[in-house]
Amino acid sequence: MKITYHVLLITASLATTIACKKEDAAQPVVPVQAQTVTNLPADPTTGVNPTTGQPLGTTGKYTFYNLRDNKTVANTDSASNKWDIGFRGTSVIINGGPIRSGQGGAYVYTGTFEQLTTVPTSATFAQDQTSGLAIPAVSGSGWYNYNSSTNIVTPIPGRVLVIRTGDGKYAKLEVLSYYENAPAAPVATSRSRFYTFRYVYQPDGSTKLN
């Protein structure tokens, strides 16, 4: 009777283990979802000095953003690991490098947002330095072009920012507009320094971005 009891117990245990494995295998892999952020202020101006042509009302402060939580972070937390990316005018900073507290870095990818399904193995992540930013704030070199004749900033088609976040995860981000309410054809009077962008954040630490 004891032998029979043990055989039944082992059989039941194996059946439970197999059932659990089947249940685990049946669980689908949920793809990461793209998020869209609209009208994120990036130190907007209140006007222009008619004499000097310089912007008025700017604070010089960045707007910090946490990609994992999809929310802004208080400027008082600028020295923490709570934020991943910051915006001020056309400058975009990353929470990483010798002048930051996080593990972040950035890589400018040439190609479409949809085509970028994983972080390229050849990607070299730059970090913000005192001598320059990981994402160049220069027309044609980073995410935007600037037309001096029209005074318009436009995102460069086929430029995607690959971000290593402050906590070492990965994301991809595409700037869609630099103007309030994302007008299809901004003009010189359109209110600038308001980002609309879409991004995908990978929470599991892998390099998959779809």
Rank of each mutant, 00 (worst) to 15 (best):
T189S: 08
N49K: 10
T45I: 07
G86H: 08
R68Y: 14
V29I: 06
T58K: 13
E114C: 07
S78K: 15
G142T: 06
P186R: 03
R88L: 14
A106G: 01
G111Y: 06
I156D: 06
L176R: 03
G97I: 11
G168V: 07
G105D: 06
I99T: 08
T38A: 14
K22V: 05
T196Y: 10
K61S: 11
E174W: 15
G142Q: 05
T117R: 03
T121S: 15
F194C: 00
R164G: 00
P155H: 00
G104W: 13
K208A: 12
T150F: 14
R159V: 10
A134E: 11
G168H: 09
D128V: 07
P136D: 12
A188T: 08
G57Y: 13
G166H: 06
N81H: 04
G132Q: 09
Y178N: 01
Y5P: 08
P186T: 04
K169V: 04
Y62S: 05
A182H: 03
T59N: 08
Y146F: 12
P31D: 09
N39M: 04
T150A: 00
T46F: 06
Q27R: 15
Y5A: 14
T76N: 06
N39L: 08
I85Y: 05
A25S: 11
P157I: 14
G97H: 10
L116P: 00
N75Q: 12
N70L: 09
G168T: 13
V37C: 02
T130F: 08
T117H: 08
Q202M: 15
S131I: 05
C20Y: 14
W83I: 04
I94W: 15
T36I: 09
S91F: 14
G53V: 03
V108I: 08
L56W: 12
D24K: 09
A184Q: 12
T76Q: 09
I85N: 02
T45V: 12
F194I: 00
L9W: 06
P55S: 13
T16E: 13
T11H: 12
A19S: 10
L209P: 02
A137Q: 13
